[in-house]
Design a protein around this nucleic acid. Structure first.
Lengths: 243, 243
DNA sequence: ACCTGAACACCGTTCAAGT
DNA sequence: ACCTGAACACCGTTCAAGT
């Protein structure tokens, strides 16, 4: 009874993988990548660091599980029976691809720490569900089977690359000035570009002003549109030369 | 004299930022990201860990400098006076873009640890030189000024995303079986995909066999071609909606 | 079966002290 | 000006011991 009571004072539910991942996400959101510590996690769960290892193999698995949970929530269930994401049926594959890409973009915006984590081995990555859903839409686009892998990979890698870049921006943003807003940050980056050596960076200097006012969400979508246009432009060319 | 001699026995040249970065690259190449340690670096340079801080502000700067050196060597000088990379003048902007992208791809292949590092703040990233050179070729392609930033960003982010993915693959590859070759690794990944739940991952399962035999270099280039095709397909659409 | 928390083997970084 | 290396404040992970 005494032990039961002491335990009840310290934590209502028993430890579980789910509760650990949930707490990890909270820590990550609050303090960034450096904030996830087995000691901090143990304290938040009112236990010792060793207890966590009973439910999770180590830090890497924990990070993957956390990223997976966030991506799954952002992108929706993977069941074939629900072909489109929850928010309104997308009329065309193009629109579905845009909605999907935007889901990942916004998830990274809300949880910048996923950005770096997403670049993991694709075979068991949290991004596998995104890959799958992109694939279905590329199929719906009418891309022949032989060109599907290339097409989906192009979209997938572009989304991953932009995500990593945005995560890096968010990190730099917070490090420099926490209360600055996004456009101000982009303005500062544009200033840095405008100051580059004209001999070495003429192009980058020249488009510095163009970056200044841009909405990076719209920019990201424009990139998606470019790739979709490239995919639909010519089926035969999209197959790699080796086949 | 005695101290001079002792020093000469231990190290020929004095410490310098250059020598430190060089040693860091060796460490990174030999043992991966975990291999770069201030203690290991100090031992290799026959000094104490504190000495390194006189030339370099910390680990992050060291990693960026190392990545920058490798990318610079892979992509060549940035001078406008040498518009194309060293290896034979590229006839068309398309070919120049392919050569540039392949340079980054091969650099990551040779030094997988750059892959993760490349996803840093773009403003002072090692990838800025790649961005610049892509920009010049996009200009040469005849893309109107308003659409250039979007076009270059699409290429840049795709290259970054694929690079991160390849770095993750290389890491997993080495972790599982060091002497396996690349196609065998892809085969194992394909097997894993083929075993996925058909209800949740019908598309990914279906193209598992297609991934099996593919050359990832050719696949990467095919993705570049898709994006270039999308860029040249229609100038007006590639500008983001906000402008 | 599950939890505890001290202990181990590391890290990056700092800093008084040397030359 | 530049180097040294002990010391500080952490890490992730393990493991005997508890319940």
């Amino acid at each position: 009874m005494a032990t039961r009571k002491r335990r009840a004072e310290r934590r209502e539910e028993p430890l579980s993988r789910e509760r650990i991942v949930e707490a990890a996400i909270e820590l990550l959101d609050a303090a960034g990548e450096g904030g996830l510590t087995f000691r901090a996690l143990a304290e938040r769960l009112s236990t010792g660091p060793g207890a966590i290892y009973w439910h999770v193999s180590g830090k890497e698995e924990l990070l993957t599980a956390a990223a997976d949970a966030v991506v799954a929530a952002a992108v929706g269930a993977d069941r074939v029976s629900a072909p489109d994401a929850g928010d309104g049926a997308a009329a065309t594959p193009q629109e579905a691809i845009r909605a999907l890409a935007l889901g990942v973009f916004d998830a990274i915006d809300a949880h910048p720490w996923i950005g770096d984590d997403l670049a993991r081995a694709p075979a068991r990555s949290p991004m596998l569900r995104v890959f799958e859903r992109l694939g279905r839409q590329v199929q719906a686009l009418g891309v022949p089977h032989a060109a599907q892998f290339t097409a989906v990979s192009a979209l997938h890698n572009y989304i991953l690359g932009t995500g990593g870049q945005n995560a890096a921006n968010a990190r730099a943003h917070k490090a420099i000035e926490p209360y600055e807003d996004r456009t101000a940050f982009l303005g500062a980056a544009a200033d840095a570009w405008a100051d580059l050596d004209p001999d070495e960076y003429p192009f980058t200097r020249g488009i510095a002003d163009q970056m200044r006012g841009h909405d990076d969400r719209a920019e990201f979508l424009a990139g998606i549109d470019i790739i979709v246009a490239g995919i639909t432009a010519d089926w035969t060319r999209t197959a790699p030369a080796s086949s």
